[in-house]
Design a protein around this nucleic acid. Sequence first.
DNA 1: ATTAGCACTCGTTGAAGGTGAGTGCTAACA
DNA 2: TGTTAGCACTCACCTTCAACGAGTGCTAAT
Lengths: 342, 342
Amino acid sequence: MLTERQALILKVIIDEFIETAQPIGSRNIAKREDVAFSPATIRNEMADLEDEGFLSKTHSSSGRIPSEKGYRFYVDHMMSPLQLSSDEVRLVQSQFDDRMIEMEKVMQNSAHILSELTQYTTLVLGPEVYETKLKQLQIVPINKQSAIAILVTDTGHVEHRSFAVPSEIDHSDLEKVVNILNEKLVGVPIVYLDRMIESEVIDLINRYTSNFQKSYDLIQKALFNHQTTSLYVSGKSNILMQPEFNDIEKARSLFNVMESEDQIAPILKTNQEGLKISIGHENEMEVMNNCTLITATYTLGENQIGTIALLGPTRMEYAKAVSLLDLWSNHMSQSLYRWFND
Amino acid sequence: MLTERQALILKVIIDEFIETAQPIGSRNIAKREDVAFSPATIRNEMADLEDEGFLSKTHSSSGRIPSEKGYRFYVDHMMSPLQLSSDEVRLVQSQFDDRMIEMEKVMQNSAHILSELTQYTTLVLGPEVYETKLKQLQIVPINKQSAIAILVTDTGHVEHRSFAVPSEIDHSDLEKVVNILNEKLVGVPIVYLDRMIESEVIDLINRYTSNFQKSYDLIQKALFNHQTTSLYVSGKSNILMQPEFNDIEKARSLFNVMESEDQIAPILKTNQEGLKISIGHENEMEVMNNCTLITATYTLGENQIGTIALLGPTRMEYAKAVSLLDLWSNHMSQSLYRWFND
DNA sequence: ATTAGCACTCGTTGAAGGTGAGTGCTAACA
DNA sequence: TGTTAGCACTCACCTTCAACGAGTGCTAAT
């Protein structure tokens, strides 16, 4: 489809543009050592590349900038997998030591470090809790009127929520119900808790007084109606540093989206394993039309999948971002496997 | 110090400037119904006010804008305590119902609602945990190599941290240590835990095998070396909406600060009860020299004090911000008292 | 097929001039 | 003596214009 020379020129333009954010002219390309043609030749090739849709201009006599199709081709066919510096690799490895053995910490830390390393915004979506199993249920009375319910999963996820305790309910009642629930429910996948309760536990509870029913209702409300999309975002303000967002209006609208979990979480949910790169208008959301989102999935056990993503301008350091994300998600999957699957 | 007429003019200028963010000219002031003087008179008064330092100009023939001293005078002597709309009052009241009975939720929700209501950035600093007391300690084993320690305080604060369990330590050992700790330490203020352990518990533990010592060390590490400044920030991007931050560089540097808990938390820590308003250069931090920070304290019990703050441009809607923050912190203190002090 | 040469395009910069909202000052007025 | 009308002046802002230069496309020579 593209001649070797065209590919070279396209690659040079994209590499340079990623670095400088400025349109690239033929003379500048010709100056490079790895390019042996005159500006005029390059101009001809660039005109062809523009006809094919790989490049575009900011105005009729400006240098060229990559189009989204250009980036797409670059990403699919030309990207040399950047060798990460040994410093970076070591830093990544050092993150997955003994301290990272709790999902919250892993995700928080991942978001933080990756945004530091890339200077892009990092989004980490926790694994769907559906496959995780109940490890323990616990009620801690705080005072006459309130108590805290704590649910621990086998992934080390701790969920807690306080609730009001009506005066007619005694703490000892709650305790008994919790005991029953623990007995029957430990080891049950969170997603089946509801069903399991229906079929096995309800009967048992009904044998006791009506207060038990009320206690159960309380706990049920406190813990099982939880929606737990755990989203961690770090380095939001990095996006401000990109010259693409010198226009404050663009920054504003993107920030509005990033502030809202509801809008971000769905974009990250994916079934496709491995890396996925969405360039510009490939992103459904309009405010992200001048952004690239690279998502990678990590696994926890067999079916649980979480997502980790980098959000930057379309003019992204693809090679570095991809390499880092790949390295990270692999380490993360391995590390999680070590910790939660034996 | 100021004549009545000067005060009126100053107030009008500040009110108008807060609304429009534009320098105010004498003609515009004269047009207002509550001002009965000619532009020339007003100009004379404005010149005097400028000499006194209450006003300044953006250039030699521009209208006046309030100086920091002007805002200070306004805040100290002239601010009419805005009657909040009944909608707003109702909204605030409705926030402190049965669902708000857990510190994390209270703070998170406070930050969120206040930033929505004011369109400024809201910062909430949790109460120092020093006075809170241990309610319960709990260890939940996750697998052979890891366990989660959970600490619940009498304020409903849940702290959890996972830790690696060396192979030579048995879970039953951990359990026994936890039992001992619970027996001795429930009800002890968090800040005294260390001392209490030294004096009372250590002996007890030393009577048992050395494994107990190791178990204890583990738990100690996992739970008691926690630094728990709980800071919640909401509406960071609101600051972008203010025309003061159309200059993207200013926005960038302020964002950098807001992203870092370490820099924000100290500013909020205060002993002074009640409201405090820091205008412009009254803020120590340089990036906040064109901002106003209004902090209010709330109490939980006798000595525990937390802070809730609004951060906006110096051209802030002081009356509204102050009224809201006051209303909120009072409700919050009352609500917390109801929940955690009986 | 490649490239040198050249006319052309268009964004950027800076200077010049006009406009208008604002001021300070002076002199007239109540 | 305090207030106000009048007027000259200032300065940010906008528009226009010309010069500049980095870049292009096209043509003709190599």
